[in-house]
Write a protein that binds this DNA or RNA. Structure first.
Lengths: 340, 340
DNA sequence: TTGAAAGCGCTACCAA
DNA sequence: TTGGTAGCGCTTTCAA
């Protein structure tokens, strides 16, 4: 059987309390000699406290929950984006002696259930945005940091009141500016915009990039038009209009790859005629033909940062800000060409 | 505060024991009326038992551990392969009311620690093979199912004795045969083999495919030679030898993509001259140029199957076999051409 | 069919 | 600086 605090206490000939005190580093309550003795015995048996017992008495559980909000269960964690984030979280967690429980949620009931089952230090939540936010957010009774959750001004103001909520995002607006400026810098002035089909009127990652696109074009006195916006269902329309554009902003590398394929199948000339800039820098981006110019988003760092922020919140430490924005980084490859 | 079994008992005016009995479906020990009453109260409060308390008394924890063995912490869960598996596990787990804790391990100590911290129903372990196996395997005190762990005959014999260990793999040998037969079927007879650099003498996924390659070639009286084997560090040598081959077997889609890029950069003719077949069918495979012919591996299904198997083991149910082999499926696209 | 009580491993409170 | 003890929420004897 695994060794318990009781056995340690017996062997050291001290009380449970004393052992507990050294385990929890309350050194000021124990004499130096006993600390040394007890620590040596702990070392000897390679003792680690039972988290279930600990959790039961409502102290630290060392457990954090990574929650992925999605309606389609088969999507969830296979998304490389979340995989990267998990990877980052996991690395930090292991270093810091934390454990991470992953779970899919698609309702507030899911959150309630999981909270009743286990005691968490806090949560990292991915995939929540728009109207779901308020409903989901209210049921958490522990700190939470949201990743890639963009909020409307009103909602944001509301959350400001809650000291144990934080947000880590890419600065998607800035990333968008980066992409468009690069295009303009290279001489492009007729620039289309391609994204997945989504609700353009709710704050979201895509909406930020869209705003950046519009603003940057306007700033340079370039023409902006609603019909220059395409969704992934409109490749045909895009192809028809292609002669109008010398460049296109695509909201994700995978979508860019789909566009490449589509274009290659129709008209040989297009792919070398059209410049494309995208977002993500997935591992495949550099292997594409042409190698994709894209804004690197560092999802893994988001995971790392989110974990760090969560631990700070959970321990009531001061945090610098509740909105952490990561810089995107333009990776210039071959898919954007210089215009004379 | 969350409602406890005690409050349920009070409201129902019965003992804790009785409530516990209905929660654990020991209906034969409780009268019909009380069952109905208690269940209605449970329903009303949306009561769920506290897993920490449950675990503490050594009954079910509903917790399974997904352990990823790797020396490089930053690799781990960002690998799309493990992400797919996690996705499958997670879906099943949620349906069945289980929770999954993910963790990186790179020593048996890691396993010991996590086992002392929490009570698991069992483990799903990914990334262990060769000599690490025996050492890691012995420290588990709960059922475990390994994914993609190939064992030597001797080790396998050893494990046969352990009724609570199982293995789910793709039938990598069969998948290899599928790939090579396809090539031969299309008229190819000079076929190279490209894989990541690895220990060819230990049982592994790649070794299985390699054996399939050799055996199938031999079966068709085709020439097999050691110098036809290339690693990902030998692209230059491969390029030099390329005129000898009409086709190549590559052990993974991502590597195939790297090869494509390399070849495109050197000699325009090569990529359309060389047929390539690969393994995985990652989402990018069909977007490659040419679209990649590959053997689909269904990693997600492995996760699903592994979970199911684990639950069976944990509940001492009869299992049909301790070695579950999934079929690969050849996805024929454009990267293999018919020879006249 | 029901319930009282012990105890899982730990922390927290209070007293010494 | 130390220790005794109650109790976290639950399951599990054992007795009624």
């Amino acid at each position: 059987m695994r060794v318990t605090i009781k056995q340690i206490a017996e062997e050291a000939e001290v009380s449970l309390t004393t052992v507990s005190n050294v385990i929890n580093k309350r050194f000021h309550r124990v004499s130096k000699e006993k600390i040394a003795l007890i620590e040596s015995i702990i070392e000897k048996y390679n003792y680690t406290p039972n988290m279930n017992a600990r959790s039961l008495v409502q102290s630290s559980s060392q457990l954090i929950g990574l929650l992925y909000y999605s309606d389609e269960p088969d999507l969830s964690f296979s998304d490389p984006f979340i995989a990267e984030i998990l990877s980052g979280i996991n690395e930090q967690a292991k270093k810091a002696g934390y454990f991470v429980l992953v779970h899919n949620i698609n309702s507030k009931e899911d959150v309630k259930t999981i909270q009743k089952n286990w005691l968490f230090e806090g949560f990292i939540v991915v995939g929540v945005w728009g109207r779901q936010f308020v409903e989901i957010n209210e049921v958490f009774d522990r700190p939470v940091v949201y990743i890639d959750t963009h909020l409307s001004k009103e909602t944001l103001a509301l959350v400001q009141e809650q000291p144990d909520r934080s947000f880590v995002n890419t600065d998607d607006y800035a990333a968008g500016v980066l992409a468009v400026e690069h295009l303009i810098d290279y001489g492009h002035s007729n620039i289309a915009f391609l994204s997945y089909d989504y609700a353009f009127n709710e704050p979201s990652v895509i909406e930020e990039r869209y705003r950046a696109y519009v603003d940057t074009l306007k700033k340079h006195d370039l023409r902006v038009a609603e019909e220059h916006i395409y969704t992934d269902h409109e490749f045909d329309r895009l192809l028809k209009d292609l002669s109008q554009f010398s460049a296109i902003v695509v909201t994700g590398d995978f979508l860019a790859a789909r566009l490449f394929k589509y274009l290659k199948n129709r008209s040989e000339f297009s792919i070398n005629t059209l410049s494309v800039v995208s977002f993500d820098d997935i591992s495949f981006a550099e292997l594409m033909d042409p190698p994709l110019t894209t804004v690197r988003l560092e999802q893994r760092n988001k995971g790392i940062l989110a974990f760090e922020q969560l631990i700070a919140l959970a321990n009531d430490q001061e945090v610098e800000s509740h909105l952490l924005l990561l810089e995107g980084q333009l990776i210039s490859r071959k898919s954007v060409r210089k215009l004379e």
